[in-house]
């Protein structure tokens, strides 16, 4: 977590800010107590569950005056900003928990299980709201911690039979292949070569041209037939024809003349496109139709 920033990967996000609580006497306006809080707001998503964990961590860093004694905070998840059906949270409200400034810094953690209902593709913008109170004041103060990365939940069938799950969709996942992995060595070498020699560095991490996932169908077949024609396949025999960008991407050969082919052992070609490699990546990152992803070749 970093102050003032949202740090996120495909499954977790963390945002941190500092809050100042002031207790003010009325009508004089005199401040009779202040407290400084470090507030962290986190998510932990699960690619095969509609329920994720959301956690607010409040730490009283320092306090003065009456705020030293009995400042309290409760927390709840606000699902109202969602598109479609909102998320639901258990428990609905947590707290209030007491902060004891006189004995040094107290940390209180509020953990929620948040669920995305139904089967539809839904975007959620779940926020954590804290309510701060003090025995000296009849009113309470509210603050939305905010900054949680948007959450997307779906029940898509074309990523594998794993039911509903959720990701942070603004983080593009990275598909990694190793040249040291004998099972896919030839494919990895070809992709690395293609990312360097083509006009555009298709899929190369953060180079501006992410691939977009294309599920199997007419277009992926057309991609395959355009790149790996019968003539090319015959030329590569006994090896198979490998193409990049993948036929399973919207950057494939049928719609993008900037592609590469190479002869690769058939077993490596099949393994890379199969359930243990690209299929697993698509499933575990919930890479839906037209979702962006990167392709990184490692040693």
């Amino acid at each position: 977590c970093r102050v003032g920033e949202q740090v996120s990967d495909r499954f977790s996000s963390c945002a941190e800010k500092y809050l100042i609580v002031s207790i003010v006497e009325i009508p004089s306006g005199k401040v009779i107590g202040t407290a400084l809080f470090d507030a962290k707001n986190k998510t932990r998503l699960n690619y095969k569950s509609a329920t994720w964990e959301q956690e607010a961590v409040l730490k009283m860093v320092r306090s003065f005056g009456v705020a030293k004694f009995g400042t309290m905070a409760s927390a709840e998840v606000d699902c109202k900003a969602s598109q479609g059906n909102g998320c639901t949270s258990a428990p609905g409200v947590i707290g209030p928990k007491v902060f004891w400034g006189i004995w040094g810094a107290t940390t209180n953690t509020y953990t929620f299980k948040v669920t995305s209902p139904g089967d539809a593709l839904v975007g959620h913008a779940p926020q954590t709201k804290v309510t701060v109170s003090h025995p000296s004041s009849p009113e309470k103060a509210h603050f939305t911690l905010g900054n949680i990365a948007p959450v997307r939940c779906d029940s898509a069938k074309n990523i594998g039979n794993i039911g509903r799950g959720c990701v942070h969709p603004l983080v593009k996942p990275v598909y990694r292949l190793s040249k040291g992995d004998k099972a896919v060595k030839g494919v990895a070498e070809h992709i690395e070569d293609a990312q360097h020699k083509l006009k555009k560095p298709w899929g190369a991490v953060n180079k501006g041209y992410p691939l977009h996932r294309l599920p199997n169908g007419d277009l992926s077949r057309a991609n395959r037939d355009t790149a790996c024609t019968t003539a090319v396949k015959n030329r590569y025999k006994p090896k198979s024809c490998d193409e990049y960008p993948f036929a399973g991407s919207y950057e494939g050969a049928a719609v993008n003349p900037d592609y590469s082919t190479a002869p690769v052992p058939l077993s490596e070609n099949r393994t890379e496109g199969g359930f243990k490699y690209r299929g697993k990546f698509i499933m575990q990152n919930r890479v839906l139709d037209y979702d962006e992803f990167w392709v990184e070749i490692t040693k």
């Binding site: 809050l19 207790i23 103060a141």
Partner: peptide
């Protein structure tokens, strides 16, 4: 009394 809460200014962060 009244209780107020706001985000800390950069200069107020330790």
């Amino acid at each position: 009394t009244r209780i107020e809460i706001r985000e800390a200014l950069p200069s107020e962060i330790p």
